[in-house]
Design a protein around this nucleic acid. Structure first.
Length: 376
RNA sequence: GGGGAAAUACCAAAGUGGCCAACUGGGGCAGACUGUAAAUCUGCUGGCGUACGCCUUCGUAGGUUCGAAUCCUGCUUUCCCCA
């Protein structure tokens, strides 16, 4: 894997670059649609490639391991072949499920013991076996197993949790470096920085992770209940610790505004369920602001979904029609809204890239943030 | 023509003397959603008020009772059965 910086913004910490993986190039800053179970919910690959212009998508170790199971994916020839997607894939390690499935899991030094949310069966994830599973999945970018504490965690818990994440990282990276890819192409391994909202913990976590000279570095444990200002502050704390030549991935973030603010603070990669989940639940993000399509006020608004939108659905369908689809419970509604939102997110990071290259990113970002926060 | 049953909020449907402004569904309105246990979840849904509360409601007009959606009588409407 190779990462080269094309431009640095002078007025902010934003940068733009090109990340080269085994399955092609990724232009950063980039948003990566989430495809947890081997599908970006409700969106066909054809549309994901040509309309959304997605350059890389996510899969999830926990979900794919439970269903269809590692063996099926191996026999399919890897996740790319199984789901028919030949661009890059990043898999999360299952660390986030340590957080979101908190009542059906148990943390130990060895790893994380889970109960399957599907059938209740017991499973153990270790820093080593999640590498094996992700090797079998064939992800271009593999994530370390971590503990993602809630945003409300106190200092003592945050510190203990970080120490566990660090010990897991050492084991994970050792295992990664002593195993081979399954399918012949290169895979890379990203450590995850924890430390909640405590600057000294974050700094120490970054230094520790960077001591292994990884290909890229992920920031986890943000946007998990703490105020957005604290998240931005953590990015500011981390920014000077990061070397220029490694991509920085802010996990699970976020709103369009969060993404622009994080780009301004030096982040290169993002993923979030928000465009697809909120889309399925009738919220769309547009260049004019946020629209809840279920609201009555759209019932007779026959204007295009998003007059400046980059997706064909933006001009092909009206707000009134999409509202009708949601109210009627028709599945085309969630599909159109997901497609719109993903296209919007990818358009947003593409615009950010352009403005970084042009050298007017900060001014553009500040004017966008105001529009994006509006609720229509 | 005779006999029987029923009328409850936007719809359906509980409730059959005080715990009823009225269960529950649906519909409607609004909100939430950040490395996806989510095409899910939450709230409101007679009026006024932030709230304690006050006012008007259970086909309609009366009556009984301290108190009625609930009991009685007339009327209206609907449904069923027999001629």
């Amino acid at each position: 894997m190779n990462y080269s910086i094309l431009a640095n913004d002078t007025a902010s910490k934003a940068r733009c670059g090109i990340l080269t993986t085994s399955h092609g190039e990724i232009q950063t800053p980039i948003f990566m649609p989430v495809g947890t179970i081997g599908t970006v919910k409700g969106v066909l690959h054809r549309d994901l490639e040509h309309d959304v212009k997605a350059q890389i998508i996510l899969g999830n170790t926990y979900h794919l391991y439970l269903r269809p199971g590692t063996e099926i994916i191996r026999r399919a020839g890897g996740l790319h072949k199984f789901i028919s997607w030949d661009k890059p894939i990043l898999t999360d390690s299952g660390g986030y499920q340590v957080f979101s499935l908190t009542d059906i899991r148990k943390l130990t030094e060895a790893g994380c013991e889970f109960r399957s949310h599907i059938d209740g069966s017991k499973h153990l994830f270790t820093p080593e076996n999640v590498v094996d599973i992700q090797r079998a999945i064939g992800a271009d970018i593999i994530m370390a197993l971590d503990e993602c504490p809630p945003g409300t965690a106190d200092y003592d818990y945050a510190k203990k949790s970080l120490q566990l994440t660090q010990r897991w990282l050492e084991r994970g990276i050792r295992h990664f470096r002593t195993t081979e890819p399954y399918y012949g192409y290169e895979q890379v391994f990203f450590p995850i920085i924890q430390g909640c909202v405590y600057p000294d913990l974050r700094r120490a976590a970054a230094e520790h992770a960077l001591s292994f000279d990884p290909e890229g570095i992920a920031i986890g444990g943000l946007a998990v209940g703490e105020p957005a200002e604290q998240m931005y502050e953590m990015l500011e704390v981390l920014q000077p610790v990061f070397p220029e030549g490694k991509p920085r991935y802010l996990m699970g973030v976020g709103t369009p505004v969060n993404i622009l603010e994080a780009i301004a603070r030096g982040v290169d990669m993002f993923d979030c369920v928000m465009p697809t989940r909120n889309g399925r639940n009738a919220t769309i993000f547009t260049s004019e602001g946020i629209i809840n399509l279920r609201n009555k006020k759209w019932a007779d608004d026959f204007s295009p979904l998003d007059p400046h939108g980059a997706s064909f659905v933006d001009s092909a369908y009206s707000k009134a029609y999409l509202r009708h689809l949601f109210v009627a419970g028709e599945m085309l509604g969630p599909q159109i809204a997901s497609l719109h939102n993903l296209t919007f997110y990818l358009w947003l990071v593409e615009e950010a890239r352009k403005h970084i290259l042009q050298g007017d990113f900060l001014a553009w970002k500040n004017s966008m943030v105001k529009k994006l926060e509006r609720r229509l």
